[in-house]
Structure formats: structure tokens, C-alpha cells
Amino acid sequence: MQNKRVMLKLSGEALAKPEGGYNEDKVRDIAKQLKPSLAKGTDIGIVIGGGNYWRGRSSEAIDRTKADQIGMLATVMNCIYVSEIFRSEGIDTAIFSAFPCGDMAKVFSKDEVNERFAQGKVVFFGGGTGHPYFSTDTGIVLRAVEMDVDIILLAKSIDGVYTADPKLDPDAKKYDKLTIKEVIDRRLAVVDLTASVMCLENKMPLAVFDLNEENSIKNALDGKINGTIVTV
């Protein structure tokens, strides 16, 4: 089933090369996968993590609030880069931030985002929630709820949700479908707990799939999830 409005989450690490810098070919491939759904009129919002730039919680020398602020700025930088690659592929874009960034991004406004969606633009949401102590998981659920999306698509480096970390447990089993309450009760690492509770309270479904699988984003946008669907 074709979704009318979706939020896509990309990890910063997934867009980076192992030796540093961006994997431009991968970003271009993502842009090409979006085009068929954009042509059908699907509204696409994107949130990008900042892990390719910053993992502040690993340092005890930096105040948590300051570390989170650096991470929020990293997400804005990722939005600017990916937005520009998308534009070079012929996709119109707009960037909104949770806090003022000069002329680099507009401050988030639901009305203005709806205007950009009506114009057929892919909208990037940077800066998380704009506050420390909240992850980009919480940021994407917040924006998804505010923008009345049909589903959140989580493109990860793993092909779904497992009973345990498959890298550590060879007996880990993948879920094809489960509920958000099961995610919370079993402490499964889909999104963080705050984001999971927000999904539960606002009845926001999720889908988890492998970013690196061929055409995985295109298929997910068409409602073909070769991963795990988290229902509400």
C-alpha cells in the first residue's frame, strides 16, 4: 500500500565512508529511490542522525548539555549535505531546524512544512527536538506526530528487529511483526524508550529495514517491508 506521508530516518554513520567523509554514491542512490514515490505525490520527510560527526556521550570531559548541542548541530550539517546531493539529482528540498541557524535552515513551523510538502519538496528536519537529553529517535517521532505521517521508516545497518543482537548471539531471531508495547516490554533496541512511549501514546507505526539492501527504501515507500513492522 502506498503511503501518503512518511518520515524516513537515516543514520549519520550509514551515510559515511569508513575512512571518513560522506559516501556520495550511497546518498545519490537514496535520492533515486525516492523519485518514484515523489512522482506519485507521496510527502517525504527525512531526519538524519549525527553519529558520523559526534558521539559526545563517550566523553566524560564534556558537559552532557554541550555534548548534545554539538550532536544537534551535526544533524543540521548532515541535512545540508544530503539536501544538496538530492538537489543535484533534480529533487527539490527544504530544510527546517528546531533552532535558528541563520539562512542555512528555517525554524520548524508545521504550516510552512505543509506548504513545502504541497510543493512536492522533500523536507529535512534537523536539530532533533532542539533540547538536550533527547535523541534523534525522539526527534523523528515528535515531528512524525506533529506532521500526521502514516509511518516512520527506519533505514538501518541491520535488516530488522531481533530478539537479541545478531552480531553477539547467533541464535537471535528476527521479528517480522510485533507491537510497540512488545518493543517496550522486551526493551528491544528499535528506538529509545522515550521515542517508543511516544509511538505507543500517539499510535505511530514503525518499519525497520536494511538501508544497504538494493531498493530497500523504494520498496519501503511502496509499503513492501523486507524487515520488521512495528504496529500500534
Rank of each mutant, 00 (worst) to 15 (best):
Ile140Leu: 15
Gly120Cys: 09
Arg187Tyr: 12
Val197Asn: 01
Ile158Cys: 10
Leu206Thr: 01
Lys32Ala: 14
Ile151Met: 09
Leu8Asp: 02
Leu15Asn: 01
Gln33Trp: 01
Ile80Asp: 10
Thr136Cys: 00
Lys66Asn: 13
Lys35Leu: 11
Glu19Thr: 06
Lys32His: 08
Gly41Val: 01
Tyr162Phe: 10
Gly130Tyr: 04
Phe209Val: 01
Val190Cys: 02
Ser11Ile: 00
Thr42His: 15
Arg186Asp: 10
Asp148Glu: 07
Lys17Thr: 12
Gly51Tyr: 00
Val82Glu: 02
Asp192Leu: 04
Lys156Gly: 08
Val6Tyr: 04
Asp103Met: 15
Asp111Pro: 14
Ala67Asn: 04
Ile48Leu: 15
Val122His: 03
Val230Arg: 02
Gly41Asn: 02
Thr65His: 12
Asp68Gln: 01
Tyr53Val: 03
Asp25Met: 14
Ile46Gly: 02
Leu193Ala: 12
Leu154Cys: 09
Val47Glu: 07
Lys173Thr: 07
Asp159Thr: 02
Leu178Tyr: 01
Asp29Val: 13
Arg186Cys: 13
Ile70Gly: 09
Met1Ser: 10
Arg28Cys: 07
Glu84Lys: 12
Val123Ser: 10
Cys101Gly: 00
Val113Met: 08
Lys4Ile: 07
Arg55His: 09
Thr163Ser: 09
Pro166Ser: 06
Leu15Cys: 03
Leu193Gln: 14
Asp176Asn: 15
Ser58Glu: 15
Gly130Val: 11
Ser157Phe: 03
Gly45Leu: 14
Gly20Tyr: 05
Val82Ala: 02
Met72Thr: 06
Gly139Gln: 02
Lys4Cys: 11
Asp176Ile: 10
Asp210Gln: 04
Asp159Tyr: 01
Asn202Gly: 01
Gly56Met: 09
Asp92Trp: 10
Thr231Ile: 05
Leu142Thr: 09
Phe86Glu: 10
Pro166Cys: 10
Asn23Pro: 06
Thr129Ala: 05
Asp192Cys: 09
Ala189Trp: 02
Lys40Cys: 07
Asp185Lys: 08
Phe96Tyr: 15
Val27Thr: 05
Ser58Gly: 13
Val145Glu: 02
Gly127Arg: 01
Met198Gly: 00
Gln33Thr: 02
Asp63Cys: 11
Ala94Gln: 07
Glu24Tyr: 04
Asn78Lys: 09
Ile44Leu: 06
Ala14Trp: 04
Gly102Glu: 04
Val82Cys: 00
Thr129Arg: 11
Asp192Asn: 07
Thr136Val: 00
Gln119Cys: 08
Asp150Ser: 10
Gln33Tyr: 01
Leu73Met: 12
Ile85Gln: 13
Ala74Lys: 05
